[in-house]
Design a protein around this nucleic acid. Sequence first.
DNA 1: GGCGGGCAATAACATTTGTTATCAAATACG
DNA 2: CGTATTTGATAACAAATGTTATTGCCCGCC
Lengths: 191, 191
Amino acid sequence: MFDQFRNKFRLDDDKWNDYTGCFKRMKVSARTALLKEGDIPKNMFLIEKGCIRVWFNNDGKDVTTQFFFENNMVSSIESFRKGYPSPVTIETIEPCVLWYIHKKDADRIIAEVSELPVFREMIIDTVFERTFDYMKQFFSFIKDTPQQRYLNLVKEKPQVVQRVPQHYIASYLGVSTVHLSRIKSKLAKEK
Amino acid sequence: MFDQFRNKFRLDDDKWNDYTGCFKRMKVSARTALLKEGDIPKNMFLIEKGCIRVWFNNDGKDVTTQFFFENNMVSSIESFRKGYPSPVTIETIEPCVLWYIHKKDADRIIAEVSELPVFREMIIDTVFERTFDYMKQFFSFIKDTPQQRYLNLVKEKPQVVQRVPQHYIASYLGVSTVHLSRIKSKLAKEK
DNA sequence: GGCGGGCAATAACATTTGTTATCAAATACG
DNA sequence: CGTATTTGATAACAAATGTTATTGCCCGCC
């Protein structure tokens, strides 16, 4: 599971085994909350198999903001770092096989490796990328119509359209399920 | 101008003077672009007097995404770090007095101070805060009505409502100027 | 002090999107 | 295998928001 990351890091075997040994494997069924809105994150997850969505409660309706698939790391990252209550719930969509690491281990690893400038850069870059993702998603919400957002999703994240139930997609796109149906049927006609 | 930051940092006077000496003062008139969409950021700005908006072009219409006022640092931060073309334009609204620092000086300072764990934490936290801001703005776009977003703005950033022309505010809220007018008149009647 | 242009309010109408309800199809699971 | 549940499509109507056009105001500038 971790071999895919091996060549990114120049760590000696002892360190590498120490760090990867902090991850534990678990299986969970579909629709299981790994972190609940308002709770303080204890773990970070790496997906071996399955998919996960991130959502928050808006007046009783859930609003999905992100999807994750195999090999993605998942956490409510800002809360994880600062120990704040999470603004979102993290929940499996399909049955999943996950690897998780406890916050205290993650903190230790980050502190150790960030003594090295190359890791420091990497950490900062990672956070910047996260910011950039939010920015892009936010901009797309402002400038694109729901139909355009749907087309972008089909193009950029085809897995989502293939694997995720449509009502989650509708809430991710910011429209009602009915309207997403309309968009799809309109696109089908045009084609 | 920099005294307000003095007590946040435990630097000896030599370093402090070195770093603050990298900032130059300039005056610019209203509606001046400090950075244009597509250009690579060369400078970062600190506002002594005036206000600034960040916007991007959407099919000929401009969409405002942020406002900045006195004592704010302004940059297209993700692009500034990576040397990417900026996705946004940074433009003065009022005549401004600004301090700016060149990227090469900023890079040197960041590299120097991030040897110290306390600064490293500070830098990472700053980026996280930025991410958190985007997230909040994004979530508010999804969950709040335009009227609610307007009320939030009045409450949280009264300066914007007082100093910024209404059509910029409308585009910031994601509605037409006509609809913002409607919202205001509706609120006035209810009151 | 007058004038042109940017700015804001409003009305009328068009379009988009949401809501509710109903039905059909797909899927899960005992 | 059959039944319950989830999922998706569609129609009809309601509400929100955009577009265009008009008017009046205010403010900077000659």
